[in-house]
């Protein structure tokens, strides 16, 4: 399915994965330290196992550590 991850178009070889599954599929670094924004809304960590991703969704993986000056 088609979606947008961190501002980039992505073709995902999965249908409606949960956020937890998406973190694994995308091999997201330091998953315990990531914040996930789905279509502009910050998700609670306890929603990661139940919240599913749909075609066309926009997902942002945001970190407060490492990187540069500030999360988006």
């Amino acid at each position: 399915m088609q979606l947008k991850i961190n501002g980039k178009d992505r073709e995902l070889d999965a249908s409606t994965p949960t956020v937890s599954q998406l973190l694994e599929l995308e091999n997201v670094e330091a998953p315990d330290m990531v914040s996930v924004q789905l279509n502009g809304t910050i998700l609670k960590r306890e929603e990661f196992d139940s919240q599913t991703i749909s075609p066309g969704d926009e997902v942002e993986f945001l970190y407060f550590m490492g990187g540069g000056s500030a999360p988006a």
Binding site: E29, F61, G67
Partner: peptide, 26 residues
């Protein structure tokens, strides 16, 4: 680099901001 500055990556850019050894300690 832009992804790192925008918080989309945990990769270190500059050691005043983050350094891998320091991150491991944290």
């Amino acid at each position: 680099i832009a992804d790192a500055f925008q918080g989309r990556s945990p990769r270190p850019v500059y050691s005043r901001i983050a350094n891998p050894t320091v991150t491991q300690l944290e």
